[in-house]
């Protein structure tokens, strides 16, 4: 089976790295806090050490590795009859959603997403919801229109 064609915006990469930086910032505050208390109250070294390891892991994984792997994996394709998604870090999932099953399409945009002119689109069926994160704003808008016009609502079955 061939892989879906579309990729998500490259700005997603920057955004996900930014999330990583924020997480690292929080962890760094924790490290500083633990460092100070260790110094003041003669704590043993292991709390400081473990917090530092967590910080290092966040920097390497959440800023370095994960965003790029995630971005590389993310593919989607909207065809006349169905939507296909592919994503995942360790477990690569492929999801098929037929157009006739789609009940509604939403786009959402948090403050950070807005700053980067990105939007997340979520496609809901009667039982499941599927999200495509960090699409280009214009593209998401277009996609929402095209999906909702393609999705014919079947009358008698859910």
């Amino acid at each position: 089976m061939k892989v879906p064609t579309q990729r998500i915006s490259t700005r997603a990469l920057t955004l996900w790295r930014l999330y990583g930086v924020i997480q690292a910032g929080v962890a760094a505050l924790l490290v500083i806090g633990t460092g100070i208390t260790t110094y003041l109250f003669d704590w043993p070294l292991w709390p400081l050490l473990s917090v530092s390891i967590v910080l290092a892991a966040i920097i390497i994984l959440n800023i370095g590795v994960i965003p790029s792997v995630r971005w590389k994996r993310w593919r989607y394709e909207v065809r006349d009859q169905e939507i296909e998604l592919q994503y995942g870090l360790f477990i690569i999932t492929r999801t098929l959603v037929p157009m006739v099953r789609v009940q509604h399409v939403d786009t959402e945009q948090g403050p950070l997403l807005r700053k980067y002119k990105l939007a997340t689109i979520s496609i809901s069926t009667a039982a499941t919801t599927h999200k495509v994160p960090a699409l280009d704003e214009g593209e998401a808008e277009e996609l929402r229109h095209s999906i909702s016009s393609l999705a014919r609502v079947a009358e008698d079955d859910v």
């Binding site: 360790f90 477990i91 690569i92 999932t93 999801t95 098929l96 006739v100 099953r101 069926t125 079955d157």
Partner: peptide
């Protein structure tokens, strides 16, 4: 087939 809402294939590395 016409009752299945979505189908999914998962594969770990």
């Amino acid at each position: 087939k016409y009752r299945v809402q979505s189908m999914y294939k998962g594969q770990s590395i």
